[in-house]
Write a protein that binds this DNA or RNA. Structure first.
Lengths: 338, 338
DNA sequence: CTGTTAGCGCGTTCAC
DNA sequence: GTGAACGCGCTAACAG
């Protein structure tokens, strides 16, 4: 009936042996012990409910077996999916994950980063909200492996794992063109602090020229009910000889635009709608929203692999794919005929 | 240019002082130091990029300042919202949160629980997937504060924080009755391992009698496309003299039932639909789905407060509300007239 | 006010 | 095969 946690020493005492043997038993040298000693230790540990103290273990140099992840917005479905992928991969390699959410607040980002470092994580997966170069540079400098997820950080020489944004835009535009749309409104959130948004926007502007499409871009400073309305109304009413479509840069934008469509009484399809990021409700909103799904599990796995490769213990032999291809999920919102 | 983390000793050496002073500087006794010494230490710490090692601190007895949270399904929007609430509350009290996901797998639950304990968390918030009584009992026994979130665990004497399920069912049925529905199909996932589901189901059966409603229940063993179809078809075609409605026990069920409605070409409203759990897409699916929203932030906050109250350092003075009221969000899916 | 000393729980030499 | 002794980074007595 231990009122607090049992320690290695107590187990040793109860088993009538010494710390070392118990340590070996719970470490990777269990084989080297007598069968009898093993069962003694096992029994003692069980009756005491002993759990090795990973903090203490990490102290010596064995490593904390902890990975840290910084997420810009934990309520964003893409982020959650990525966290899930990372967590699975981490556990598969024997690591635990401590997740910190920043709610897209650069200040919290600073704090959380500090706290993550304080917990002696062996590696950091970062989905940045701001541009915390100084802190991150200090961390990299101090030898902590770093991987950036979805968003790069200026002047920080770390690998970025995420969607192949160029390919995504190309696939989206190809599909829209194929469906007969010739005029595209691209809607994005503010791209300042998110490199993925910048890349997508840039590629859109390029590719739209290459394909000879009529185009327009809209940057949403707020995701509220009405901020997209004027532009969308104008876009929808503009005379054109071929169907027009809206391309949403991410899931948040898709949500906002569907709201706007409904507000204006627009029918999806007659004006096309295609969103980057697959969300569970996209098939439910009539006539179904065409999306580009990100392979979030693969992205998470790649991020962990990339991290582990940077660890001194590891040979750096895990395959890492930095850029991942999306999957096009075709639904009714990109059929001009309805 | 430290190739690894700087330690307290290095800072002390550089500042020309001793470990203790540096320790005091970073602890809560900074005041007791000379202004001069303070600035020396600050400077040394900065140039070295020093971060106190919280693991080592925890070792001594200062506590790890870590809370652990076990989540049954991190991809469930309710869970994410709860995690978010817990994380905010934890940070507000100076704690960090390590989140473990079990994907509703009792085996993973065992593993994750062990790992959480190994990291010396000071308290545990548990959203159980199975019934890990033995482990949890051992943990409680060893003195770790425990709080159950949304789901109780048999024979475990720990506080459960979550929705007031009785009130939720009552509110739902009241609303349906008020809208003129007289026949209700209650759809739930398997209630075996989730006490909240049991409570809701039980209350439904009680209350439906009290109100004199025609009723039926359906337990979904799978959330796939077709498992609800036969029952729903039969329910929709059954002759009745007053409107019929479907009550969904949680967000997953709501999603499945909307799919089923669409599959069968049923119009929401003419057959009513009300879901427990608010989801971002509920307003988008025409004519909008009426829901009961859970106050997830409040629940998370209460869970943390309850945990902190059990800590020996704390006087146990934080107000804790165990049962939380939902909010009814009325939309078109509960208007019989359309 | 400040420095010295002794552990916290554990892994790791090294001898036996 | 096994056990004693030391140190990890830090805090907490206890002097000075």
């Amino acid at each position: 009936m231990p009122s607090s946690r049992a320690t290695l020493i107590e187990v040793a005492k109860l088993a009538g042996t010494s710390k070392t043997s118990v340590s070996r038993y719970f470490g990777s040298e269990r084989e080297r012990l007598t069968a009898k000693l093993q069962s003694q230790i096992e029994q003692a540990a069980n009756t005491l409910g002993y759990q090795p103290n990973l903090m203490a273990r990490g102290l010596k140099g064995g490593g904390s077996r902890l990975l840290g992840m910084l997420v810009a917005d934990i309520r964003n479905p893409f982020s959650v999916a990525a966290v899930h992928g990372v967590e699975q991969a981490a556990r598969a390699h024997g690591y635990s994950l401590i997740v910190c959410n920043t709610d897209n607040d650069p200040e919290q980002e600073q704090t959380q980063l500090a706290s993550l470092a304080a917990y002696q994580v062996e590696g950091l997966i970062i989905n940045a909200a701001g541009q915390p170069e100084p802190q991150l540079q200090a961390l990299m400098h101090s030898g902590i492996p770093l991987v950036l997820l979805d968003r790069e950080v200026r002047q920080l020489d770390a690998e970025v794992i995420g969607l192949d944004n160029t390919q995504a835009i190309d696939m989206a535009l190809d599909h829209l063109v194929q469906q007969g749309y010739r005029s595209v409104l691209y809607v994005s959130e503010a791209p300042e602090h998110a490199s993925a948004r910048q890349e997508r926007l840039k590629r859109f502007k390029q590719q739209v020229k290459t394909l000879g499409l009529d185009s327009q871009t809209l940057v949403l400073n707020s995701l509220d009910e009405h901020s997209a309305l004027p532009t969308l109304r104008e876009f929808s009413q503009r005379p054109a000889c071929a169907p027009k479509a809206v391309l949403c840069a991410n899931g948040n934008v898709t949500l906002a635009m569907v709201r706007s469509f409904q507000h204006l009484g627009l029918t999806m399809g007659s004006i096309g709608l295609l969103g980057i990021d697959e969300l569970e409700w996209c098939e439910l909103v009539s006539p179904g929203i065409t999306t580009l799904a990100q392979p979030t599990d693969a992205i998470g796995q790649a991020a962990v692999a990339c991290l582990l490769n940077q660890l001194p213990q590891h040979p750096g032999k895990l395959a890492v794919q930095a850029l991942h291809s999306p999957t096009l999920i075709i639904r009714g919102s990109t059929s001009p005929s309805g």
